[in-house]
Design a binder for these strands. Structure first.
Lengths: 196, 196, 196, 196
DNA sequence: TATGAATGAGGTTTCATTCAT
DNA sequence: AATGAATGAAACCTCATTCAT
């Protein structure tokens, strides 16, 4: 029985290694240009093994998607903030964590945005992630005295999508710490002013 | 001489039809999953003809990119605005035109965002389009009394990327006119407030 | 462990079958006109398998070239000769063996000469084979009292290229045993006289 | 009428240019790898024109073959020799002219040897050229007192094929004037000795 | 569980050839 | 005579997938 457990554990590790490798390859080349051979090689296994764990390349994609949940990260980011800080420093901190998280999950984000345009299921997933990412910040702002209202929700969505765009098009390439600080500083100020 | 011109004209039409078909197919399936066979069929020609006009599938992609210039559209949108209107109605009008333009060029935009994640050349192109899209609006705002400054430029970039994201993730699917009006109204208000 | 070896052995057989089939097809049609489909069919495998074993059609050509070594055959031919025979019967024997060997490796020889004219790498290979083919005979002649010297080396090269030409243009088609005997007899006599 | 003649003349020029271009391209790449596009470009005409003058690419090959006659050159070479010279200087002169001629017709020779291995018609042509090339030299030698006989004919064929081989494999690449002189000197001496 | 040989459909590209002009 | 757009078959090569071991 112990041996079985050991085997199961090793199998699970292999499966996870495949999922992680797939994510990396997908984000590098896009789903269509990624080959199962690439993925297998990246995971250090042979070609056929993928089909022992996944029914198809597509299934492997979904396994990747299922494994990674961005929402949780954003929620955690919001909850970990110190309630005593000023609104401004609080937002600064939140946006920084958001960008850190985007960097950390770069492969996933890049893959999501790359595939979302042609894979409706991926796009829906992306939308729902963004929608759900709004609420932790909304509650936080409410607690700091910002009024409720749909327009506040929309302001949050706007600023969050803006930050994702900033990440995708600028931050992720440059890795310019100063530029990022300035960006966040200005964006936070404008965001707070935009709330009226 | 007339005959030559006629033939050349027909050839040019065929070439353009190929470029347009390619754009449509690329935006539908992404570059990698689009087959030259699909493109040829969509253009109503045989497989081989693509290679009479373009050296490769990649070259065809660049022909598509070169043919379409988004910047001009944005600049035109800015210049056509009525200088007598209030700042608010002016921005409303501008954002509407921007969304109209995005709809009009939906295939191109979708392709750009899909490919930008894995094709650095496409991404650079996208970034430069966005960068250049900032200035027409900047000048317009300056003329209406908004102060100059880097933070204003950044505010413009932010709001523009936000609108592109809105288009990609929500507007382009729903086609909900009311939702769009509300979105623009709120976004304009917040944008103006964010300028301080 | 035994199973693995069996599979590997079968794989090796397949690979060798591919190389042999390639040689046959190449020599029949030349490299450029040979199709990978032809080769696969000749080997009794499907098209794609070639690319499991070889990176390209060109690589398959080099595998063919590498597998076959003509030099060894010539050297062996020289060494197997009986040192007690007269110079004349010794040379007769050597030329006969050389022609036998050329017949045996007809596919390879034909391919080499066909491709050598347009593929510099193949030509270099061919030249080096001829160069190296000179020495076994040179040593043999030295042992039988023929003097050393560059002109002897050149005489050997000349007579060897002549025999190859005879094979390529006449012998290989006619398969005329008597003609061949007469050819060798006369050529041996003239060769020995030419040494002075 | 004059115009027609002019047109016909220009047409003939075009046709000849096509044949010459074809020869050059064939000898460079071999028949199969040469494309009609290549040939047309080399001749400075458009793709389709080839099919105005020749029924197919194959026909163009035969036009090339028909246009060039090597025999004449060899016969001329033999006849132009000075009958008063010694046998040795006469042969030296003849072999030099032969190599000059091979250089002059390099494209043709290379193409002939490249294609002869897989195109039986080309090979027959090559064989008959070599056979006929023997007689001018035979007569010359007879006139200088060399005895008649089949073995002399064979000696001539052998030495001629040897020289062709020398050209194809060594001389044509190196272009080493000294090496060539030495080669001819030794070969002539050995050839004369081989006659007994 | 893991291997990697084998399959076969399909992709990009090439190219001889045709034909309207 | 000359052009070059257009065709379509076929070439090389890729790759997801299967399967015997």
């Amino acid at each position: 029985m112990k041996t079985t457990t050991l085997r199961q554990q090793k199998a699970l590790e292999t499966k996870n290694r495949l999922i992680d490798s797939a994510l990396r390859v997908f984000s590098r080349k896009g789903f269509d240009s990624s080959t199962t051979k690439d993925i297998a090689k990246e995971a250090g296994v042979t070609d056929g093994l993928i089909y022992h764990y996944f029914a198809s390349k597509e299934e492997l994609l979904w396994a990747v998607v299922d494994k990674h949940s961005l929402n949780k990260n954003l929620q955690t980011a919001a909850l970990e903030l110190n309630g005593d800080d000023s609104l401004e420093s609080l937002m600064t901190c939140y946006f920084n964590r958001m960008l850190d998280m985007l960097h950390e999950k770069e492969s996933l984000i890049v893959m999501f945005f790359g595939e979302a345009q042609r894979n409706p299921q991926i796009r829906e997933r992306l939308v729902s992630i963004i929608e759900e990412g709004i609420h932790p910040l909304y509650f936080l702002l409410n607690n700091k005295g910002v009024r409720k209202g749909d327009d506040v929700l929309l302001a949050i969505r706007n600023v969050q999508t803006t930050i994702v765009m900033y990440f995708l098009l600028f931050d992720r390439m440059d890795n310019d710490k100063d530029g990022r600080d300035r960006y966040i500083e200005v964006t936070v100020r404008q965001f707070l002013r935009s709330l009226g």
